[in-house]
């Protein structure tokens, strides 16, 4: 396969970037999108040019490190797939592919296709945890969880924090990420003690960095784990409850 790539090149944070066109010849259809970028980088290096910087780690769709905008779609044209699991056979021979970094004010560009997603870490620090005794691990299944609840919590926990939801959102909102993280813990018995402070804090920290949800549903389609926007509804319901509950907690009543 021969591919024409239009890649966003930017030397560093805050500087002006632009598209650069590369011809990538002899691409195997069995290559993943990232392997195709590796091939390009190898050739660029051999030519003495600066390789294209992009984020990647596990390359098996579970770490959430990779992710670029491919032809205007986060993680490319295949739904429910991270960039590393997208294969070149999904593209036509001779196709022109536009590759851009996630664009959102909450995700400043560091270099080329790499963005700074530490705003997600700020949201997690605000409440994406439970408080437990450390020490030896407790026996499994000591705390009974109804099966449907466990399944739903697991669906939320599937979030790998790649940021595709923010990238795809026309408002640069992180509601799907935050909702997944909030719901994952709010659904489970272990998450109940901090449920209301978690919801309030995570939502409010999220709003310091990102936009607001207008229910387009683009995030759900962009998500490599196909996380449902039903979780955003759950978070909205819990947020208003949290405002009441936290007033009671302030008076040291449950």
């Amino acid at each position: 396969m021969n591919i024409t790539l239009q890649v966003w090149r930017q030397d560093g944070p805050g500087v002006t970037g632009g598209f650069k066109t590369y011809q990538v010849t002899d691409v195997s259809p069995e290559m993943s999108f990232l392997e195709m970028l590796d091939l390009l980088n190898e050739r660029l290096t051999n030519q003495g040019e600066e390789p294209v910087a992009f984020d990647h780690d596990c390359r098996e769709g579970i770490c959430g490190t990779c992710g670029v905008m491919i032809n205007g779609q986060a993680h490319g044209p295949q739904l429910g797939t991270a960039t590393c699991q997208l294969h070149m056979r999904k593209f036509q021979d001779g196709a022109t592919i536009v590759v851009e970094p996630w664009r959102a004010t909450g995700f400043p560009i560091l270099r080329d296709l790499v963005v700074d997603r530490s705003a997600f870490d700020r949201i997690m620090e605000a409440g994406g945890y439970i408080t437990v005794d450390t020490g030896s691990a407790p026996d499994a299944n000591l705390i009974p969880v109804p099966k449907p609840v466990a399944d739903t919590a697991f669906d939320a926990a599937a979030c790998i924090g790649c940021g595709a939801c923010v990238a795809a959102c026309p408002n640069g909102a992180a509601n799907l990420f935050t909702a997944a993280k909030v719901s994952h813990l709010n659904l489970l018995p272990q998450g109940q003690a901090e449920r209301w402070t978690r919801t309030e804090r995570m939502v409010e920290i999220m709003e310091e960095f990102f936009g607001s949800c207008t229910n387009h549903g683009e995030c759900e389609k962009a998500c490599p784990k196909s996380i449902s926007i039903d979780f955003i509804a759950m978070m909205n319901a819990d947020y208003v409850k949290a405002k009441f509950k936290n007033r009671r907690l302030l008076a040291q009543r449950g």
């Binding site: 239009q6 966003w8 598209f19 905008m69 032809n71 205007g72 779609q73 739904l79 536009v98 590759v99 851009e100 664009r103 959102a104 004010t105 909450g106 959102c169 026309p170 408002n171 640069g172 909102a173 709003e207 960095f209 990102f210 936009g211 607001s212 207008t214 387009h216 549903g217 683009e218 759900e220 389609k221 962009a222």
Partner: peptide, 19 residues
Amino acid sequence: MNRRARQDDYAGPRQYIAA
């Protein structure tokens, strides 16, 4: 708020799937 959160638009062909 949303305009501030998404200042730079995508230069590539933006494809809406759900919106």
